[in-house]
């Protein structure tokens, strides 16, 4: 079992009849860092929401660390998949940074000492240790983003899933975040429109359009194919 994420033939149709995913097949090996690019409405977010079963699978198969994403495995899978949403405000709902980062470990029922230790580790990873007692509401967007990543790192996930991590960041905050992600020794899948970041950070790129995977390969190859990019609205 060398793959962290295995997706076979996954399709999904929203209740209003909109087909968001159309026979998606995708594997992620351990330690791989993959970009998911494509125009708005291509189905990227829908795919990400399937990874920990927030959207219920309709047809096809998804496995995370060998576990089928459904039913009684959902609890385990949610701890294994660290999903960071686009808007950090949605992710930070507790009074202090500590409370937010501790949410996952506390929910898992870990003992208090281990919760504290995990929070500390996660905050160190995103270089925000001294923010532990701060109030999330007052942080800058870049700081909130890093805390949001810490809130899932504290669960020790097997794969980190990020939706538009650089959206809305100023150049310096964006730079900090890219360096931070580069240093994280963890499998990750990143949905983004930020192609320069993709080129710099993620060796493999998957292009989605209209619910389908239309290209999958080394980032350097894909991003140097102007026809492909233009066809899917991704001109640089």
């Amino acid at each position: 079992m060398s793959c962290v994420v295995e997706i076979r033939d996954l399709s999904f149709t929203y209740p209003d009849g909109h087909k968001a995913l159309d026979h998606i097949t995708l594997d992620l090996a351990h330690g791989e860092k993959v970009a998911l690019v494509g125009p708005n409405g291509a189905g990227k977010s829908t795919l990400l929401l399937h990874l920990n079963g927030i959207l219920p699978r309709q047809t096809g198969e998804i496995r995370v660390s060998g576990l089928d994403v459904s039913g009684k495995n959902l609890g385990r899978v949610r701890a294994l998949v660290g999903l960071v949403f686009q808007s950090p405000d949605d992710q930070l709902f507790s009074p202090t940074v500590f409370d937010d980062v501790a949410y996952g470990p506390i929910y898992q029922g870990l003992p208090a000492e281990e919760v504290r230790q995990r929070v500390q580790e996660a905050l160190e990873r995103v270089k925000m240790s001294e923010y532990s007692s701060r109030v999330s509401h007052h942080l800058s967007v870049g700081e909130k983003k890093r805390i949001a990543i810490a809130t899932v790192l504290s669960m020790k996930p097997a794969v980190l899933v990020l939706d538009e991590p650089t959206a809305g960041l100023d150049p310096r905050a964006r730079r900090t975040l890219i360096e931070l992600l580069r240093e994280l020794p963890i499998t990750m899948i990143v949905a983004s429109h930020d192609l320069p970041m993709v080129r710099e950070l993620l060796p493999r790129t998957v292009v989605m359009d209209q619910g389908r995977i239309v290209a999958d390969g080394p980032t350097a190859t894909i991003l140097s194919d102007p026809d492909l990019l233009a066809r899917h609205g991704l001109e640089q």
């Binding site: 009074p95 999330s136 509401h137």
Partner: peptide, 8 residues
């Protein structure tokens, strides 16, 4: 109220 007390 705890959250508001902390933030504002």
């Amino acid at each position: 109220v705890t959250l508001v007390l902390a933030a504002r």
